[in-house]
Design a protein around this nucleic acid. Structure first.
Lengths: 158, 158
DNA sequence: GTGAATGCAAAACCTTTGCAACTGG
DNA sequence: CCAGTTGCAAAGGTTTTGCATTCAC
């Protein structure tokens, strides 16, 4: 079964399979690449390379960590997956190709996607002193997620 | 000459010297800490730890890289300096304590501070699905800076 | 068949740590 | 004086690289 793309890298490929995207770049679809892609599309919890490695080993026990890094590079290069950097932590990988920010819970470590509110643009919030041409932006928040906030409120009551 | 604080960590300390801030935490002001702080306050070009190390060696030739990391930790812990993380690059250090975002030029590597426009809030741009309590946020843009845009425009004309 | 991709090991890189020697208040 | 800080060297964790082998097309 081919892997369908969720989200959109570009308007034209929203029904393209990952196989087609890879082939479109003159690259090959290997078991390892498919397995890495499936893991990231599966839990969608922003795993690190090592976490992807651990999960992928279930399906492809011979895969090496170097190959996982290779596959992640290829998939991000093709626009199938996005890299998420936060502080000095290891890189995480995200299958959500829509415009979004990330929330990092300082208590449980969970990473949550925050979609863009309609008609809002990050560029409007900041003052650009000159002719900057913006190609990317990355926005991250940290604090306490709803689950951990609720937990804290409960234990404070007692 | 004591180092005056620029920007504000908290409203109350805007005329406090770095010495006073350090002493206020029960810590000592050493030659190394002062030199590291002066380097960061000097060029304000968001140097990495290794760049700070190289510059500081001019004043304190015996300083070690581990001590530079130590000093940077202490200074950020005291709120005198902020850490700037971008992708998988080494951490950079910033003496601007005002609320701001960063622009990373993909052509020349320069890092520019982008101040907040008045009456705008980053939290308004994103949709938070639940009761998130935000303690920090970090916003970074990348693309081409004015200097490099101008250079590119000039060479395109010919 | 052939160039691309894998797997392994080793290296590179940034950062932290352990500990004896030193020093600021 | 003496806890806090330094300097050195060694280790830690993440990511990359080189190269022989394997595999997708």
């Amino acid at each position: 079964m081919p892997c369908l793309l969720h989200g959109m890298a570009t308007p034209s490929n929203h029904t393209q399979t990952a196989d087609e995207t890879i082939h479109g770049r003159g690259l090959r679809m290997t078991d390892q690449r498919r397995a890495v892609y499936d893991v990231i599309m599966g839990e969608r919890d922003h795993p690190t390379a090592v976490e992807v490695f651990t999960r992928v080993r279930g399906k492809v026990p011979t895969i090496s960590l170097a190959t996982v890094y290779n596959c992640l590079d290829t998939l991000t290069g093709c626009g199938l997956v996005k890299t998420v950097a936060h502080e000095r932590e290891p890189a995480r990988y995200c299958p959500n190709l829509e415009e979004h920010a990330h929330f990092f819970c300082e208590s449980c470590g969970a990473v949550t996607d925050l979609p863009l509110r309609s008609r809002k643009k990050p560029e409007d919030v900041w003052y650009f002193p000159g002719e900057f041409s913006v190609s990317h932006h990355e926005v991250s928040f940290s604090g306490t997620c709803p689950k951990c906030s609720a937990k804290a409120a409960k234990s404070n009551k007692r």
